[in-house]
Design a binder for these strands. Structure first.
Lengths: 223, 223
DNA sequence: GCGCTTGCATTGTGATCGCAATTCAGGGCC
DNA sequence: GGCCCTGAATTGCGATCACAATGCAAGCGC
């Protein structure tokens, strides 16, 4: 337990903690609205409260976690229609923009990479493996977005996905993953292959738009 | 030095530190590209390194500070044309959107508030008080945006202003504040008064667009 | 005189401790 | 039986210490 790690060779502990909590949030393992605590998280992850504090600060700054202003206690933000609407709007702006830039900078390597991820995604869908589907979907979008060479916009998109994560889990829990997909990815790949920026923008916008509509319905149904 | 504060009555220390560093960044008191350290900041602010760590984590998450990936040391992000372009794009999307929503929800109280701030802004301009001008400009925009009742978009706008802060200082250092203003604020106020969402959107978009163009020129001139 | 190396100062990270405040359960009182 | 009050446990915040690693500069060797 007390083994001191040589700090520089691998990622810092607070980064690992950050990733762990992030994944737990995205996959919905921590229920929205529920309260958490530094010490409980630390115990659960087998680390001291210190790196958890650092990770939590980051997550709060990214609005993936919230602080009850009265008692200053941590809690997972609740899923509201209002939040979803704002997140949808923001995603529908940034992500098509990133897709358009990426398409303009694409090469055959990217196309092959996207095709491979999309194949994996279809496989996950066929098997009904929700976790794998979500991972592949994330991988697909961000493999594309990274090519946009737009650090700030990319970070914005990452933050939005982090906040939208819990909503996705709600959708999958209600309607199943299969209804979510109406393959706009192939459309996007074609646009990328052709270097068609506007085509990629439209494909990604359509992809998001459909997904967010499903989430909206699921959230409304939950209320 | 060791006086323990009753924590609940006022804001926490790490929040005060956050605000202090934030202001220092926005007003350009810490030069971009320069390195800072937790202990030096702590000493400068007269607090222990601990709350500085918390504040810095937040600022890094908001990309107002950066970490040199090699030595993990802190530094103020440099001003590049690429960063400015992305920030401009993002601002030109969120802020007009916020303005439009605010205009739809406005009342006479907001109008009076905006008029008062704008008067203060003009006064600052007349006196050549750059700090006061920047504070008033910030106050004007966010008094409006807060009325949009869109927490997430508002936070996004806040993060963008924080990142754009150093650029503003560069502009003022080069061309002076007076050339920045071509009073779109009056135009915005009129739209708000009339509840004209699209008018407010256009006015704010024009305001930003002109300001960002000035910054672009200043940054290009610096290279 | 110049380059390299060694030693010290500084840096970020993590652990541990103390404090104030809130939360919650239990038990006594009416 | 229901209400309140009290005490223990939990929580977030801040301070201090320890440690590995990097940066920097003085001093040695050539």
């Amino acid at each position: 337990m007390k083994t001191r790690r040589p700090l520089a060779d691998s990622t810092a502990v607070h980064d690992q903690v950050y990733e762990a909590i992030r994944q737990a949030l995205i996959t919905g393992r921590i229920a929205p609205g529920k309260g958490v605590s530094l010490r409980s998280l630390a115990a659960e992850l087998g680390v001291s409260p210190m790196p958890v504090r650092d990770a939590v600060r980051r997550l709060v700054a990214e609005r993936a976690l919230a602080i009850n202003p009265a008692n200053k206690r941590l809690l997972v933000p609740s899923l509201t229609a209002d939040r979803l609407e704002q997140l949808s709007l923001a995603r529908l702006w940034v992500e098509p923009e990133l897709a358009a830039r990426a398409a303009a900078r694409a090469d055959t390597g990217l196309v092959r990479q996207l095709q491979a991820i999309d194949a994996d995604l279809d496989e996950a869908l066929r098997l009904g493996d929700v976790d794998r589907y979500m991972a592949a979907n994330h991988a697909f979008h961000f493999a594309l977005y990274e090519r946009a060479d737009a650090e700030i916009l990319l970070a914005m998109a990452g933050g939005l996905w982090l906040q939208i994560g819990p909503f996705m889990r709600v959708v999958f829990g209600r309607v199943g993953a299969d209804v979510l997909v109406a393959d706009r990815h192939a459309e996007a790949i074609e646009a990328v292959k052709a270097g068609d920026a506007d085509g990629a923008r439209r494909a990604i916008a359509a992809d998001l738009s459909e997904g967010m509509d499903k989430m909206r319905l699921a959230v409304e149904a939950a209320a």
